[in-house]
Simulated assay, not measured.
Amino acid sequence: MALAASADLRQRPGEVGSRGSWRNSEEATGLALVSPTLIYAIALLGVPILTVVAYSFWSQNYLEIDRTLTLGNYRAALTEPMYQDLLVRSLIISLVVSVVTVVISYPVAWFISFHGGRHKNLLIFLITIPCWTSYLLRVMSWKMILGYQGVLNTGLMSAGVIDQPIASLLYNSNAVVITLVHSWAAFAILPIFVSLEKIDRSLVEAARDLGDGPVRSFLRVVLPLSLPGVISALLIVMIPTVGDYVTPKLVGGKDGVMIATAIQAQFGKGANWPLGAALSVTTMAVVTLMAAVCALSLKFIVGRIR
């Protein structure tokens, strides 16, 4: 009996000790370190999004918010022709910008990764230099380049290519695409470069030894293995450009207006926050769906190439 009691006493401190040891474990330490950051992220990201979602189900009664749940805002966002046209135009511009940016950025990232040698860090450094300046200044610079009396028109006239300035270079969707591609090119190059750097060069050499030429080895080895970087670059560009407000406002004109302008108008002069919130939530949902479809389609295409 005495031995059993002493054994039981020896077990109880062990159990307490095991719980105490968990508090001192790496898992508990990591959780303690992550928790403040997680709470901070939820406070800054989750709470505003939930607030916007809540507003989208309410209605505006002059200067007061009627908190009676309704789907009228979503009905207007999805059925009114003006909002439909703006959303479709925003999605098309975003998709075009994303594809063009990735197509332009991939060769740059590939050259730096495979042929940059000891100058890789310097080349990446040079690519990031435009990001040091204000986004607004970069947009304004393109306004000066594409303007009626801008750098491009002046240069073409000086070279004798045109007799008078071209008015269609600015204040349209093409100007928005050009400006956004330039603004987001660096953000697309970096993830593609990182993905290319992770590729084992011996796999490319093995493909060459087995008879694949440069193009075939690229399609069968390099492109599939760099696909995560391509998808990341596509999403990094696509998601924010749908809701871009500054670029369409400055260089888009009436033909380059996007959905963000309508959202800003509802939160500003329109004084209809619930409708603006519904437009925001609808845009987020459509962008998420479009991004998923694009990523899956890209995987399928590359899989068929292989």
Rank of each mutant, 00 (worst) to 15 (best):
F218M: 10
D212M: 09
R208A: 10
K254W: 09
L219G: 10
L250F: 07
L250Y: 02
R201H: 04
L250S: 03
S232N: 03
D200K: 02
G253I: 14
L203T: 06
L196S: 01
R220V: 10
L219D: 07
V242A: 06
P240T: 08
G229M: 02
V246S: 14
A206Q: 14
D209V: 12
P228R: 01
R201C: 07
S195Y: 00
I239F: 04
P228M: 01
V230W: 02
T247M: 07
M238T: 13
V251K: 13
I231P: 05
E197K: 00
R216N: 13
S226P: 05
L235Y: 05
R201Y: 04
P214V: 12
F218N: 12
D209C: 09
D212E: 08
P248A: 07
L250Q: 01
G252E: 13
V251W: 13
L196M: 00
A233Y: 04
L219Q: 05
P214Q: 15
E197N: 00
L225D: 00
R201E: 07
D212F: 07
I231Q: 05
L223W: 03
S202N: 05
I231K: 07
P224Q: 00
K198E: 04
E205Q: 06
L225G: 01
V215C: 15
D212S: 08
I236C: 09
G252N: 05
L227G: 00
V215G: 12
R220C: 03
K249A: 08
